[in-house]
Design a protein around this nucleic acid. Structure first.
Lengths: 160, 160
DNA sequence: AATATAAATGCATAAATATGCAAAAAACTA
DNA sequence: TAGTTTTTTGCATATTTATGCATTTATATT
């Protein structure tokens, strides 16, 4: 089908280059031997979930909302995760070790997630005390950490 | 300033309810006693990084880009603002003073907003250097900070 | 305070996008 | 395959958004 091919091409183009208006995308497609009208493009973009958003420099660009979001998220998380070295339980609390100087930032990040399970955190230089709320199990807190910092437990394992 | 108030109201509205077109947002604002024209709204939305994207059900909605939304947690804002003591310009850069030990967290928060205007930050113990991107004015960075940390300039004034 | 500079805004309108409708293409059915 | 239904598309145009320009408002300077 012509449509599927076009959808794929649109996805590719807008994720690789900055497209400001549909007419521009139309030309790019034509260059690849795919042609349609602006009306069709408008419909296709909606179907792809692609929208026109500010590009930060005063202009606009098309962007796949889902893709952009998930990739931005994972970048953020990748920056966070590697700083965590270990998580151990002690006296019903969790002690998280980070690389030096990163406890505060990491704790701030954890607090920012606003999870119910975590009553609070206290951060030193490379150590964070995570205090579970009463009635919450350690296991629940681990699950919760995995939500805030996907892959964190794997990271730790691979360092051991 | 009227504008800051409006920017905040816009952020709040589009993150809480589904807004399909600017005229709709215009009416909501009017309902809150804030009035402007569609032209101004268009400019404000661009400044906020808010775009009109498919809502998944065949319609459209306005949405803040992901990085901005993450700084949207109003609780976090309240916790951050009081730690900032001063912001001064020096050599085309901004120097932000915080209460002792809070520079890193604050800088982390600012970085997290992912604003185009800010090329990067460097944090010591109670001082943050905010480096504007080339071509961005100090005033633009101030506006941008006001978006990330609403009320920050008022806070500083009231401490003087 | 008076003047100079920059920022914000509204108006009118240009630019860009979305959509109703009819035609064409594709998919399906007996 | 001929007929039927569904999907896709283009055309024309309505809807929506962005912007040049002039004016007002705010900010800074002397």
């Amino acid at each position: 089908m012509q449509k599927t091919k076009r959808l794929l091409a649109i996805e590719k183009i807008i994720s690789e280059e900055k497209i400001s208006i549909q007419e521009e995308l139309l030309r790019k497609l034509k260059g690849k031997g795919i042609s349609c009208t602006q009306a069709t493009l408008s419909r296709n973009l909606r179907q792809l979930g692609a929208g026109r958003i500010p590009d930060g420099t005063g202009g606009y660009k098309y962007s796949l909302s889902e893709n952009i979001r998930s990739s931005e998220k994972s970048l953020l998380k990748l920056n966070i995760v590697p700083v965590i070295r270990d998580i151990v339980e002690a006296k019903g609390l969790l002690v998280m070790k980070t690389i030096p100087g990163n406890a505060s930032n990491t704790a701030f990040f954890i607090d920012g997630a606003g999870r119910y399970e975590i009553a609070g955190t206290i951060a030193g230089d490379d150590t964070i005390l995570i205090i579970p709320r009463d009635g919450v199990t350690i296991q629940q807190v681990h699950t919760c950490l995995e939500i805030i910092l996907p892959g964190v437990h794997d990271q730790i394992k691979s360092k051991k």
